[in-house]
Design a protein around this nucleic acid. Structure first.
Lengths: 179, 179
DNA sequence: AAACTCATGTAAAGTGTTACATGATTAT
DNA sequence: ATAATCATGTAACACTTTACATGAGTTT
C-alpha cells in the first residue's frame, strides 16, 4: 500500500488537490512510483475517511484541497523507518533472459543489444536531468540521491548487457570451432 | 501477463505438473518472478483452455502432467523478441528515499546503512550461488547471465547506499559549521 | 495410527490499468 | 463561440496475495 505513503509524502510539501498531486507524480515520482488518475482520487478519499488527511478548502470546479493531518505525518514516519521494505521486485527483462535459449542466437544477441541501448538512453536522459536539477529543499536533496541511484542503475544495466552479449558471442564462436 | 510466459518457459525443459512447476519457481525464478500456488494452478488451467499447453498424462493424486504445445512455444518465442518489455518497475526503497527528510537525520542515515547492508548480504548470497552453479544447458547458461545481473545490481546498490550515507553526513557537517 | 508430502482447487480482498463520463472555468 | 485546461468520479477487467478446503499416497 505504498501509493498511500507516496501521497502523504507529497503532501508534506504543502496543501494540494488531487489534480495537483497527479502532476507532482508525473514530474517527480514517475520513475519510482507511477500512479494513475483513478488511483489517486480514490486513495485520497480513503485517506480522508481514515483521518490521515483533511479537506482544508473547496475551490472552483469542485476542487478539494487536501492537507496532511498530524496522524498522516505519523503514519508516514512510521512507514519510513519501522516498516521493513518488501524484497523481491519482479523483473520482466530477466525473466526473458532465462528463456532466451528458445530463440535463435542472433535474436538473443539482438535482444541484449536492445536492452543495452535502452539503458544507455535512460542514462543520458537522467544525466540531462541532473544538470538542471537545482534546489536545496529536502525533496530536492533526497531527489538527487534517487537520481544518482537511477544513473548508477542504468549504467550497470548498459554494461551488463554489453558483457552478456559478448558472452553469447564467445559461446557461439566456441561452438563454431569445436575441440 | 508474464506469469503465463514464465510457465511456458519452464515447460520447455520438459513435462511437469503444477506442483513440479511450483517448486521450479521456488528454486529458479524466485528472485525474478515469484508466483504463488493459487496463481500457478489457475494459470495452468487457463493455458490449457487456450490450447497453449496440454495435459499429457494424469497421475496418482489427481496429478496432471502438462506438456508445452506447439502453439505455446510459438507464443513464448513471440513474447521473447517481439513484445516490447514494460518499462518502469516500481521501487519502494527509492520512494522512501524521496521522503527521508521527514525523519531525523540519524534515522535517515540508519535507513541508508540498512539498505547497504541488505544489498551487501544479497551480493554474498548470490556469490555463493555462483560458485556452485554448474551445467551447460540453455537454462543454466542464461541463468548465469541473470545471476551476473543480480551480482552487479546488488554491488551497485551497496555502493550507492554507502555514497548516499556519506552525502548526508557531509550535509550535516556543513550545517553544523555555517559560513 | 499419525505425520508428512503430494496435489489441486476455490474465495475474498487488495492493488493497478484502461476506458468511460461529466461538468466548470479560462484562454483564444 | 471554441478549445484547452481544470477537476473529480465510476466501472470493468486483470493480477497478486492470503487463507481456506480437501483428499490421496507415503513414510515413520
Amino acid at each position: 500500500m505504498s501509493l498511500r505513503h507516496a501521497l502523504l509524502g507529497l503532501l508534506t510539501a504543502g496543501p494540494a488537490s488531487g489534480y495537483d498531486l497527479l502532476k507532482l507524480f508525473e514530474i517527480s515520482l514517475a520513475n519510482v512510483w507511477p500512479a494513475t488518475q483513478s488511483q489517486v482520487y480514490a486513495e485520497l478519499n480513503r485517506l480522508a475517511d481514515a483521518g490521515l488527511v483533511k479537506v482544508a478548502a473547496e475551490g472552483p470546479r469542485g476542487r478539494k484541497e487536501y492537507v496532511l493531518d498530524e496522524r498522516g505525518l505519523a503514519e508516514l514516519r512510521h512507514w519510513l523507518t519501522d516498516v521493513p521494505p518488501a524484497g523481491n521486485p519482479r523483473n520482466e527483462m530477466l525473466l526473458r533472459v532465462f528463456f532466451l535459449g528458445q530463440v535463435e542466437p542472433d535474436r538473443a544477441r539482438a535482444f541484449l543489444r536492445a536492452q543495452g541501448e535502452r539503458a544507455a538512453a535512460q542514462h543520458e536522459r537522467l544525466n540531462a536531468i541532473r544538470e538542471v536539477a537545482a534546489g536545496d529543499d529536502d525533496l530536492a536533496v533526497y531527489g538527487r540521491l534517487a537520481l544518482e541511484w537511477g544513473l548508477r542503475a542504468s549504467a550497470m544495466q548498459r554494461d551488463w548487457a554489453e558483457w552478456a552479449e559478448e558472452q553469447l558471442a564467445e559461446a557461439a564462436a566456441a561452438r563454431a570451432r569445436p575441440a
